[in-house]
Each structure stands twice: as structure tokens, then as C-alpha cells.
Design a protein around this nucleic acid. Sequence first.
DNA 1: CCATTGACGTAAA
DNA 2: CTTTACGCCAATG
Length: 109
Amino acid sequence: MKPETLSFFGKVYKVTRQIPYGRVTSYGAIANYLGASRSARMVGYAMNGSAGKNVPAHRVVNRKGLLTGKHHFEGTNLMQQLLESEGVAVVDNQVQDFNKVFWDPAKEL
DNA sequence: CCATTGACGTAAA
DNA sequence: CTTTACGCCAATG
């Protein structure tokens, strides 16, 4: 067990791993939970480093529920497939019922 | 070492 | 309401 550098990235990884099944969260929500409401970009960048880690980055979307990071996954619709596989409806790279599946760490955690 | 970019978001004009 | 600018911090060139 090794704390992933425990920096901003490490914190992001932790929170991202705690996202429940069938739920999604936004970069800003994570950043806000970490106390960096304006560091949402760092969260996204951290996801970039999450490749190969046990981090469900596919459950993290932008504030609009748009799968902005889907381009970083293997296929072109892998991210959408994963979300739909968990019960999250995704149409046109956008999460449906985003308000329902949205998981806010600052509130639920 | 300096400049540019990046899976975002909020504030201001 | 729409568009523009900035902040955040790390990685990469």
C-alpha cells in the first residue's frame, strides 16, 4: 500500500476511487471537496495520471455531465460503454439524469 | 529555466 | 443572454 504521493493528485485518486457504483461526479466537485474549487483543471490533469491505476476515471465528467475525457480512453465510446454498463444513461457524450446520478463527495462523503 | 498546454470552472464585461 | 478572461498547478517541450 503506497500513498500516491499524497499530493493533489493523490487526493483526487482517493476520492475518485470512492465514487459509488452507478454514480458520477464532476472535476469541480472533487476540487471543491479538496478545498480547491478553482483547481478543477488539476483534477482533470490528475485523471491523466490515473491511467493504469485503480481509478474509475470514467465516472468523472465535467460540470455539464459531458464526457470531455472520453478521448483519453482507449476506444471512442469506451467511457460511455462503462457508464451505461453501470446504469448511467449517456447520449451524445452527455450523461442523462446527471442530477440523479451525480455524487457530490462534499455532501455524501 | 521559460513558454505552452491541459479530462475545468467561475467571474466579469 | 453570450463571450472573454483568469485561476489552479503540474507536466512537457
